[in-house]
Design a protein around this nucleic acid. Structure first.
Length: 1047
RNA sequence: CCGGGCGUGGCGGAAUCGGCAGACGCAACGGACUUAAAAUCCGUUGGGGCGUAAGCCCCGUGCGGGUUCAAGUCCCGCCGCCCGGACCA
């Protein structure tokens, strides 16, 4: 009979709650032995807090939570002061959408969802310190989100100090004239050389702060704030009625809901995250994160090193300040090969430089690209489009006059929105140049390998089916390749392959002289080749660069450009500033008021929080003002008499946008340290004790969004002296996704077996009217006909069957992401009910490595149930099977003692490295040995319970109590292992002959090498393999094996 | 196309430093207990072959090469799958 997990689990969950078993001690609290807790080693073990959706937990959530719970419980038993908190990320668009759908107020639905999540999490026995529970939608919490926003608003990034400083510092520097103002309202050092360098030798002259008008001063300040307002092209989503961050737009559609997104210029709040690009990349290196996540962040930030080059305009239009086109390139070494330029259609210069004859064509092209969504632009990527402006620019290195085009393959948002085109050495420029007949000039010498590959590719590219079509057109007959007799198709294909082989052979035997000819061809006319030569190589046709390799040539060219003032070295980033405002209701209001001129002012700290007003109709207005703008009596703001704002003498209006979903999650880990503090966001002493986070576990979906934003905020807080660490999360682990149960699919197409992948592809091509697909029910063998792949999923749950592969079809076993539409979602409540929380926890940890993707299989949980029942029987006994536990203070056999110590060592190490699956395997092994005993030594029983406690805490509490110990096992000391007792007195050594296993011998552990080799040679199993042969070499790898090399 | 990761029995997976491949669990098969079933317990289980038997031999970690006394593990070249990015100049 299985033990009664339901009552045991309820009992201990109640106990933990009542006794606050998992309370983390504040540094000043008494730490047990009388000294303050701050003397204890600390561990901050953090989960990514959930977004409480309406559907409750799925089995993916508990995977990470159980992992951190095991680590927390282990460390607590090891004597650490453990902080393991939980909270709710509850503001944001999805919660609001959910509320709208269910016709309730988001504050109500959020509360209900949180309660459900909490019930589910507690039913799993996860040991959180609930006294530290936080919720991002509580005014007491978002007061500090607003406060941090003000820190960002009132500071700037000082490029000299390479850190954020209060904006007052900037004002001081300006007033003292350490800094002066450049024409673009950026600030530069007041030193002629540095100042000039910083503004790139432009003609403008810096001005002193005192020479600026009040309006200009305001511009300077607002241009430097880390949180600022600006009119920028943004992602506006009409369906959601809000703007979205770049990170929330995928393939031109909203991440939430998949609605189309359009670009339009709007005045919005932004976070100057770009100021931190460099540090966000540099500081990744020492972190204990997976390489793939680091790489994803680096890619997202997208640093590229190159140069900025200015191309003077030929006949610049009147009244233009900057009569040149500035481009960014990563290949300044190819400047001699720049034969034309391309501007993004939206580029500012387009209107001004387009010649009269081209105005109409340009206008038409711009209208055409503007109507295209990002998605459509991407789809048309292969076919380049564009028009000439009729204007020309001068290539600064050779004074050549080159045409200026516009094309949508150049993006406004990256670099300067303009490029120099080097068609010989850039894939896109190459295609464009070929399409529009623009000159292509080689300036880098290709390698012989490249020429070889290209020569061969020319022949490979001649697809036989295309050749046939062409021929058919010439003879006036329409013969489609598919309709040719199979024999003929085969013949043509064979002939084609033979031709390729011949060419390949020929190329192999080509002489140097012949290669020189090919190279000559390339240099004369690179356009005749199939592709651009994008590899690095030796510069040619480039005057002073000739003969240099790419790296040298880049450096030389940059030096040259800096001498002449036509260009300079530059590092460019893909990352844009973070769009921080939303036109929605369910978010943190900004602690900002706007005066009559539209200038933003911060509300003083003493007036925080700015409460989110109660409102009945919270649906989006569809305008950039958002729903808060409809609350008329909330809008106008009267400052307190003692407030700085009262001196403005202006009608003040509240900011009506709200903050995005990410705001609250950018700093929540800090609030856990001091959740009830009303004076500060976190007490500095507590912050210093607990930070940084020692282990952070969560899904990979936050690799770039949350983790980048949080690092950015943390760095700002660090710069301003509010936190003590530069990075928040020392060790990050991403748990892999849990997929649905494996499904078996049989696929047939046109009477032929196909794989699922092929099948899906064919489905796409065939469309709805296309041929039907045939599959077989794997159990009944019933034939199923469908037009869509999804209809093929005919698997029935809970049935037993044997797979019998039909020779006409292929069998494909795959598991898919859990989703409502696929109907493969597993509800943890049901699993807890059927098997208990302990078995559920154990199963999730036993499935495989934490970081791996793995399929769920309910059937396998039974193994964990059996294990737990067996442990329970050994200690609690079982009436039905008349099992009476026989636990005595008996000594352990040598072998058992060794096994116990090894298990203690292995389980401890495995937990530290998050290898829970192998730790559990060890515990099962130990219990399997215990099953064989008539008398269970108490020492062994206690060790097993202690080692198992982090994994199956409910049962182990009960067992610990039964063994006569005081509750709770959560604070019992982790058992220690004795190094001396790990080793056996004898060794079993495998003996190899020529690397093949032939026998095994047992020798004393302290036997000498000579003795071992002697014994091994005499072994019967070995003798027959070495007899009559000479032993060339005999080796003994201490403790591992013996190998004889004979000949 | 680019970047990161992976490929081991019927299935999930183990082998941490190059040293006994398949730990542990599931499923399957055989047996014990039972009127029967469940539960529980014992045994077998990568493939092939030899032997009455104890036991022994050969093959085997996606494919093809290489390094090494020894390769799942390291190197080179392919194939396949998963994840992320992608007209980023």
């Amino acid at each position: 009979m299985p033990y009664n997990f339901t009552s045991i689990e309820k009992k201990w969950q109640r106990y933990w709650q009542e006794h606050k078993t998992f309370r983390a001690l504040d540094p000043k609290d008494a730490g047990g032995d009388g000294s303050p807790a701050s003397n204890k080693p600390k561990a901050f073990v953090l989960d990514m807090f959930p977004y409480p959706s309406g559907t409750g937990l799925h089995v993916g959530h508990p995977e990470g939570y159980t992992a951190t719970d095991i680590v927390s419980r282990y460390l607590r038993m090891k004597g650490f002061n453990v902080l393991h908190p939980m909270g709710w990320d509850a503001f944001g668009l999805p919660a609001e959408e959910y509320a709208r759908k269910n016709n309730v107020h988001p504050s109500i639905s959020t509360k209900a969802n949180v309660e459900n999540f909490k019930r589910q999490i507690q039913s799993l026995g996860l040991g959180y310190d609930w006294d530290r529970e936080i919720n991002t939608t509580d005014a007491a919490y978002y007061k500090w989100t607003q406060w941090i926003f003000l820190q960002l608003f009132n500071s700037y990034y000082d490029t000299r100090a390479k850190k954020a400083l209060p904006i007052t510092h900037l004002l001081n520097e300006l007033e003292n004239e350490n800094y002066v103002v450049a024409p673009d309202y950026s600030v530069v050092l007041n030193s002629t050389t540095e100042g000039l360098e910083a503004i790139s030798g432009e003609t403008g002259i810096e001005r002193r702060w005192t020479e600026l008008s009040p309006e200009e001063r305001q511009v300077v300040i607002d241009n430097h704030r880390l949180a600022y307002m600006a009119e920028v092209p943004v992602n506006w989503c009409p369906a959601l009625g809000t703007v979205l961050a770049n990170e929330e737009v995928i393939d031109g559609k909203s991440e939430r809901g998949g609605y189309p997104v359009e670009r339009r210029p709007l005045r919005q709040w932004l976070m100057r995250i770009t100021a931190y690009c460099e540090r966000l990349i540099e500081d990744l290196a020492p972190l204990d994160w997976s390489e793939s996540i680091k790489e994803m962040q680096r890619n997202w930030i997208g640093r590229s090193i190159g140069a900025e080059v200015d191309f003077d305009l030929v006949d610049p239009p009147e009244g233009i300040d900057e009569p040149y086109v500035r481009v960014f390139t990563t290949r300044p070494d190819t400047l001699f090969g720049a034969t034309y330029m391309v501007l993004a259609p939206e580029h500012d210069l387009v209107d001004r430089i387009t010649v009269a004859e081209q105005k109409e064509a340009v206008a038409r092209y711009r209208a055409q690209t503007a109507s295209k969504s990002d998605r459509e632009r991407q789809e048309g990527a292969k076919d380049k489009t564009g028009v000439s402006t009729g204007a020309y620019a001068i290539n600064p290195v050779n004074d050549e006059k080159i045409p200026i085009w516009i094309a949508d393959y150049v993006l406004t948002g990256y670099g300067t929105g303009a490029i120099m085109a080097v068609p010989a050495h850039d894939e896109r420029d190459f295609e464009f140049a070929k399409k529009f007949g623009l000159p292509i000039r080689a300036v880098v010498k290709p390698s012989r390998q490249w020429l070889h590959d290209q020569s061969l590719a020319k022949f490979r590219a001649l697809d036989p089916s295309q050749v046939v079509k062409t021929t058919a057109k010439e003879t006036g007959q329409e013969i489609s390749w598919d309709k040719l007799p199979a024999e003929m198709r085969q013949k043509i294909t064979d002939a084609h392959r033979a031709a390729i082989r011949t060419v390949e052979e020929k190329l192999k035997t080509s002489t140097d002289a012949e290669w020189e000819l090919v190279l000559g061809d390339y240099i004369r006319e690179p356009g005749r080749f199939l592709a651009a030569m994008t590899e690095e190589g030796v510069a040619i046709n480039s005057k002073f660069l000739d003969g240099m390799n790419t790296e040298e040539a880049k450096a030389r060219m940059i030096a040259y450009l800096e001498e002449t003032g036509d260009g300079r070295k530059r590092v460019n980033y893909k990352l844009r500033d973070w769009l921080f405002s939303r036109q929605r209701y369910w978010g943190e209001p900004f602690p900002i008021v706007l005066d009559e001129k539209g200038v933003a002012h911060s509300i003083s700290e003493s007036e925080l929080p700015v409460l989110l007003p109660e409102i009945k109709d919270f649906k989006p207005t569809g305008t950039p003002e958002g729903p808060l703008s409809t609350i008329k009596d909330w809008l106008s703001f009267t400052p307190a008499a003692n407030s700085q704002l009262s001196t403005l003498n202006s009608q003040l209006m509240r900011e009506t946008n709200t903050m995005p979903q990410w705001a609250g999650s950018c700093w929540y880990y800090l609030r856990y340290l001091d959740p009830h503090n009303t004076e500060r966001f976190v007490d500095p002493e507590k912050e210093k004790y607990w930070m940084p986070v020692d282990l952070y576990v969560g899904g990979v979906e936050h690799a770039v969004l949350h983790l980048l934003y949080a690092r950015f905020w943390h760095k700002v807080l660090f710069d301003l002296g509010h936190v003590s660490t530069n990075e928040p999360f020392n060790r990050l682990v991403n748990q892999g996704m849990i997929l649905g149960e494996t499904e078996f699919h049989f696929f047939e197409y046109g009477g032929k077996a196909v794989s699922a992948t092929e099948f899906e592809k064919l489905g796409d091509e065939a469309g709805e009217k296309g041929p039907q697909f045939v599959g077989y029910h794997r159990q009944t063998g019933e034939r199923v006909v469908a037009t869509r792949v999804e209809e093929m999923l005919v698997e029935k749950k809970g049935e037993k069957y044997v797979l019998k592969a039909n020779p006409n079809v292929s069998v494909d076993a795959r598991s898919f992401k859990m989703s409502k539409s696929r109907g493969n979602v597993v509800n943890p409540d049901k699993i807890v009910e059927d098997y208990g929380a302990d078995a559920f926890r154990l199963y999730e940890m036993y499935m495989g490595p934490l970081e791996a993707q793995k399929p769920w299989n309910t059937r396998d949980i039974i193994g964990m149930s059996r294990f737990l029942n067996s442990v329970a029987r050994n200690i609690l006994g079982d009436e039905e099977s008349h099992k009476v536990p026989n636990i005595q203070n008996a000594p352990l056999s040598d072998e058992l003692e060794r096994m116990m110590h090894r298990t203690i060592k292995k389980v401890g190490e495995d937990i530290a490295y998050l290898r829970f699956n192998t730790a559990i395997a060890e515990l099962i092994k130990l219990n399997n040995e215990i099953n064989k005993l008539d008398v269970l030594p108490r020492k062994l029983a206690e060790a097993l319970v202690l080692l198992l406690a982090p994994f199956a805490p409910h049962l182990c509490e009960e067992l610990w109590l039964t063994l006569g110990n005081a509750a709770s096992v959560a604070h019992a000391p982790w058992p220690a292992y004795d190094q001396a007792k790990l080793e056996s007195k004898t060794l079993e050594l495998p003996i190899q002959v020529n690397g093949k296993l032939r026998s095994k011998i047992t020798v004393p552990a302290d036997a000498s090498e000579a003795d071992i080799l002697g014994t091994a040679q005499l072994d019967a199993g070995v003798k027959q393999w070495i007899e009559g042969k000479t032993i060339k070499k005999a080796m003994y790898v201490p403790g591992r094996l013996v190998n004889f090399v004979v000949g």
